[in-house]
């Protein structure tokens, strides 16, 4: 017995069948039609097999790629040519290789500790008094373009306002989000700026400011932290952030 139902589906819906994302009307038919059920099952089995067998099948192993980044002369000329040709066409290996070359170029000893302020102008952001916070005319914060944050704690430097907001995620963790804006109201692009959440000197998480000038740290347990914001010409410090 044959059924042409699957042939009537759009390419997008057909693609979804391979991941089990089956729309209700299609599911209804498949439940009734043995032929289609078998075909969908075969399709999903094939897709799973292909994913398991083919993932990075043509790529050099991590060991090979690391050794090639470290000491390409360990390979024969023929192997070197083969790996180089692969790197020219494989975007994934190319980006892994770049990371490895950078790592292999690092010294075999820890660099001497550089005190903050030696390489960058460091500005300590201060908590703005509540009255000033209430009067501020900071732009509304669109978190990831979706949610308006309630007003949080407002910190300021000479040029920049930083608003932090804390939200409980679970019994044991919080989400700490922030919004950066220029104090004089000028359009300043903060997108791409890195923000580090530190505790006892160690970086616990690094977030990157998005196109809405916001950043988020998830899964933050209660505790005392400090934030570092790596702006182009200065590092802004918020010395104490209490998460509780």
């Amino acid at each position: 017995m044959t059924c042409s139902f699957l042939d009537t589906l759009s390419d997008v819906i057909f693609d979804r069948l391979t991941s089990g994302e089956i729309p209700d009307d299609v599911r209804h038919h498949i439940q009734q039609c043995e032929t289609c059920r078998q075909e969908v099952e075969a399709l999903r089995s094939f897709t799973a097999l292909a994913a398991r067998y083919l993932y990075r099948v043509t790529c050099p192993s991590p060991d090979t790629l690391a050794l090639f980044a470290h000491m390409p002369t360990q390979f024969s000329e023929e192997e070197q040519t083969r790996i180089r040709e692969h790197l020219e066409t494989c975007v994934e290996c190319h980006s892994e290789y770049e990371m490895l070359v950078e790592m292999m170029g690092l010294p075999l000893t820890l660099p001497p500790a550089v005190s903050i302020g030696e390489t960058l102008r460091t500005i300590v952001a201060r908590l703005r008094p509540p009255s000033a916070s209430h009067n501020t005319s900071t732009a509304p914060m669109a978190l990831r373009g979706a949610t308006l944050l309630p007003e949080g704690l407002v910190y300021e430097t000479e040029d920049v306002l930083i608003v932090l907001d804390l939200e409980r995620e679970s019994v044991a963790t919080f989400s700490l989000s922030g919004f950066l804006s220029s104090k004089d109201g000028n359009e300043v692009a903060f997108e791409g700026v890195k923000v580090h959440l530190r505790k006892n000197g160690s970086v616990l998480q690094t977030a990157v400011v998005d196109e809405f000038d916001t950043f988020v740290f998830s899964n933050v347990p209660p505790g005392t932290y400090h934030l570092e914001i790596d702006c182009a010409d200065a590092r802004i410090l918020i010395e104490t952030v209490e998460v509780a």
Partner: peptide, 25 residues
Amino acid sequence: KLCAGSATTDRIRRQKYQTLLTDLE
């Protein structure tokens, strides 16, 4: 250091592989 590079590359691939398999349930 070579081991650090290899372990890091392996983990990068494993994370992407997990995403791929999760998409396939």
